[in-house]
Design a protein around this nucleic acid. Structure first.
Lengths: 342, 342
DNA sequence: AGGCTATCTGTAAACGTTTACAAGAACGTT
DNA sequence: AACGTTCTTGTAAACGTTTACAGATAGCCT
């Protein structure tokens, strides 16, 4: 079989002895006489005809592509989301275009400008930082956008969010139940949406249980990465010895785990550990990591479905979905604290 | 600012009082008089004009998109590759379209058919299993394809591969130098390209050092996943106690680590561990994992550049690149084996 | 048989660009 | 002043589809 030459509707029409309109109709399953259907099918098969996606897109105004923009492709939680979104939209014949932004709000704005070129029919965006400017641009965008993550109050955009506040609450509650009292918190950057929410959740949960928040019990990693987590954990442990740590993310938690064992302390014996996001990493960790499942996959699925709905029905009312967190308990947090040296 | 209405060349031309050809030329930086340039720029700005990507694609026959198909999006090594490819091609103005195949050869063939619809200008493919049929289809494809991974001899396609055989060799050599003698091997499925290569590398390296391969010292995981790794490691350890294990992949290695410590043995005290791919996971593992760096990122970059080269120059000679492996030594393999019970 | 409807098919326009071509303007040269 | 260059601009065709519309053909009813 020779390298397939590009063949068009015109070629097929000639070979089948019909007009291009008939070819198009047959190939799209519109009604036609048996005679025409057969000759077109045969001609198309013989020529190895495949319709051109670009031409079709131009004519029908749909690209069959959905863009996904996440801040940090390195974070396993985004990988899981990407995977799920890809799966859901593929069922409706959409492809996934990846637009990795750097996490800076400006990148996301650039992306929006770009989107208006019309290379995708819709966008799923998970911004780390939400500026007023970004919100304004999102509002005036011509094409459907679904946001994964929290938005400022009153912003009416399709949106799927996790309940981070309750999520951190679950972690604190669980640790308190295990008898832990000195519960520290390793957060990510406080100027990000998740960072801010998780801090709020921590403070609220501690207050609710009348647990005292030691002044040195909170640190911020400069980033939601493992490396930043190592530094943050070092700085925490060197100032204060908690009997439990809640981490804003699994990567930070795994980093803390490493710092703790490196100091000769044990998890959960000396310090119990809870992460967030419940990514694959939590399962791999040794000991395995208790983690707050913020429903990443569920959020991804919901976002994808929301976008599909809007693509099919642009006038549908705005929908905002909150996914409830669950706690996945693993080895890193179970059992009471070991008695100290004594 | 109202929601930007879609504006076309025609609108801009009217407002600027010139022909659409002039508008197109100005916007593409072709020579024009100052008067025209200015009025077009102004009109375009006022109308918030953005050119339509689809129409442009149809006309110039380029989509500015590159498709990436990998077998398993869950594997961190692919995530790293994806990231790097995205970075490299973005510099040349290309977008990345993700096509996750299931790893079955058929999926990849379907993908190729799909590609002929012309939604992308080129493809980077990393097949897990390479069948004759797949090779045939790759050969006759109309658009540029770069393969990441090994191909059967004599297949002339742009290709970037790792030297798995030498890679496993590095691992065995390192372990032997540390005084380990009972070196076991946890492989992935043997019918995959990497599985086959890594097995060959193991056997060769063991033979070269006159190390005896105990009949129970090799197991195959059903998959390159953590879960399959747990089972494989269990089955290995329950039959045979090695003093070192080489794993075909980091996920398998981390699984082995877990099984080992769960049995009360220590890494590297009792059993030294070496993974492959040198993914982020190796760094996160506790103890951190020595891993054979098969140059995933380098391969990704090379593949992306190869594809860009071919897009710019379709007639360029076929190039096959081999990336040399390096060993990244971490905690899981250093030091001699602990004396047993005695 | 006439007319009405239903079904099928072809003609042609349209989607929004890029670009070959030709016409026109500006300018220097002899 | 006539001519050749060079530069700028507009006209129109083209990319490969889909689809509105109208003809044509056939079927049905009265």
């Amino acid at each position: 079989m020779a390298m397939a030459k590009k063949s068009t509707l015109v070629l097929v029409a000639e070979r089948a002895g019909v007009s291009i309109a008939s070819v198009s109709r047959v190939l799209n399953g519109l009604p036609a006489s048996d005679r025409v259907v057969e000759s077109v099918r045969a001609a198309a098969r013989d020529l190895g005809y495949v319709p051109d996606a670009t031409a079709r897109s131009l004519k029908v105004g749909k690209t069959e592509q959905v863009a996904l923009a996440v801040a940090d492709v390195g974070n396993p939680v985004y990988v899981a989301m990407m995977h799920e979104i890809s799966r859901v939209i593929a069922k409706d014949g959409y492809r996934l275009v990846l637009s990795s932004t750097g996490g800076a709000a400006q990148d996301e704005i650039d992306l929006l400008d770009n989107l208006n070129r019309g290379f995708a029919d819709g966008l799923i965006l998970s911004p780390l930082r939400v500026t007023d400017d970004l919100v304004a641009r999102l509002r005036e965008s011509r094409l459907p956008i679904v946001i994964i993550g929290s938005l400022p109050d009153g912003v009416e955009l399709d949106n799927v969010r996790a309940d981070s506040v309750r999520g951190v609450g679950l972690a604190v509650k669980h640790l308190a139940k295990q008898g832990r009292r000195q519960i520290a918190f390793i957060n990510g950057p406080i100027d990000t949406v998740p960072g801010a929410a998780r801090l709020g959740g921590y403070l609220r949960a501690m207050a609710k249980r009348e647990l005292v928040v030691h002044p040195d019990a909170q640190v911020y990693a400069s980033d939601f990465t493992f490396k930043a987590g190592l530094e943050a954990a070092e700085s925490l442990i060197s100032q204060f010895t908690p009997d439990a740590i809640v981490c804003a993310n699994d990567l930070l938690a795994v980093a803390a785990m490493k710092v703790i064992t490196r100091r000769g302390l044990s998890v959960p014996g000396d310090i119990a550990l809870v992460g967030m996001d419940d990514t694959d990493i939590a399962e791999l960790a040794n000991p395995s990591l208790t983690s707050v499942n913020l429903g990443s996959v569920a959020r991804a699925r919901a976002a994808a479905k929301l976008l599909l709905r809007r693509l099919n029905d642009p006038g549908a009312p705005v929908k905002q979905i909150v996914i409830e967190p669950r706690l996945t308990i693993r080895e890193s947090s179970i059992g009471p604290a070991q008695a100290a040296t004594s």
